[in-house]
Simulated scan of single mutants.
Amino acid sequence: MDLAATPEQAGGLAELQRAAQNKLGGCLLRLQQYELLLKAMVANTEVAGPPAKLESLREEQIACAQKNTLGGLVGMLTGGYLSSDDSAVADSPASEEPPGNGIWFSFQHRMVMDAERYESTKAGLKELVDLRNELVHHLLQRFDLGQMERCEAAVAYLDRSRGTIDAHYLTLREWAEQMERTRAIAASLMDSPSFKDMLIDGIAPDGQVHWPMSGIVDSLREAEAALSQGRPEGWTELNAAIAWQRQHAPEQTPQRYGCSSWRQVLHESRQFEVKKQVPAEGAPAMNGTVVCYRSLREE
């Protein structure tokens, strides 16, 4: 400050310095709000894994997001939630299913933009990260707050910076609200009978059955495991399995899967070997034989 400055000038400079401090604090607080919202978004952009591990996987993602810097979070956002075309969604790691027959759940949020808007958005987010670093590390190098003129310039710069930060925050909040609406729709869908039919019993909304994961095939295998012990080569009599089903899984009926009989289930599912044989003594038979089945065996 100029030693010859009048008391009025000194008072004006002090007021400008307080204004600069307040405006810098406002910018940094808004940046922290932005960062907290961004952490919540990137932690919930996608989740994939066995149903029993989904909650722990989500907690790991939240912990990972909490440790990231603003630059790292922006990279996760532009490399995950934001994409320039549909191919980015198809190529994402969360859409890859592991080998095996176990249930694998994958859920993703994406905002797809045209290439020009995507690149413009990425550039704008990079500028925000650069602005944050400038405010935190270099403000005093850029503006000498001991000089009236530079202090005035700093206040104007901080006003512009706050406007930029607020605009980014409002955009991010809009994206977060869209994500939350999408999650609510997805939750409603997953709570619907049609989704449960598909997930639990393999029955698609159009009535098509994915037999390998269907509930009726699972229950036939459970009956097989319970009844085939001690029988030659593991064959199970279908009539005995039907009786077991009525006691243990009465909701699993052929009609639920568009079939008129259990024999049709065995045929349509293509998951079992089927043969006719002479019944055990005292067992009910049709035309002197009984139908038996066993799960297909790997070669």
Rank of each mutant, 00 (worst) to 15 (best):
A225K: 10
E299D: 09
T121K: 06
T253K: 14
Q141A: 13
A19I: 07
L82I: 09
L54Q: 14
W104D: 14
A153Y: 04
R132W: 13
E55H: 13
V155N: 14
S192N: 11
E177R: 11
A226C: 13
A223G: 07
S83M: 07
A48F: 01
G75C: 06
Q255P: 01
N22L: 10
A5I: 02
Q66Y: 07
R294D: 06
M213H: 14
N101F: 15
E46I: 14
A184D: 14
A88H: 07
L266F: 00
Y293L: 03
D191F: 04
A204W: 12
H210S: 15
L36Q: 08
G102H: 15
A153R: 12
Q17H: 07
Q178D: 15
R30I: 03
R221V: 03
G215K: 05
R117V: 14
A184Q: 15
A4S: 04
E233T: 08
S219H: 13
V155W: 09
E281W: 02
M179D: 05
R183G: 06
S214R: 06
A48Q: 04
A153H: 12
R160P: 02
E8V: 06
G12Y: 01
D114R: 15
A48H: 03
Q66L: 10
P193F: 02
T289D: 13
E224A: 04
Y118N: 13
R263V: 10
R221Y: 08
R110T: 15
V217R: 05
L170I: 08
V265M: 02
M41E: 00
Q208V: 14
V74Q: 07
V155H: 12
E46L: 14
R162K: 12
L37E: 04
E152N: 11
V265I: 13
P232E: 15
A19L: 12
G288A: 00
Y81N: 06
A241W: 00
A285T: 03
G71Y: 03
C64D: 06
V47L: 04
Y157T: 10
E180F: 01
G79F: 13
Y293D: 03
L296V: 13
A283Y: 03
G102N: 15
V112K: 07
R231V: 12
I185W: 14
E299N: 09
N68G: 06
F105P: 01
E299G: 09
M76P: 01
E15F: 04
L170F: 08
Q271E: 09
D86K: 11
G75R: 05
S120R: 15
S161K: 10
D85C: 12
G26P: 01
T69R: 08
Y34G: 00
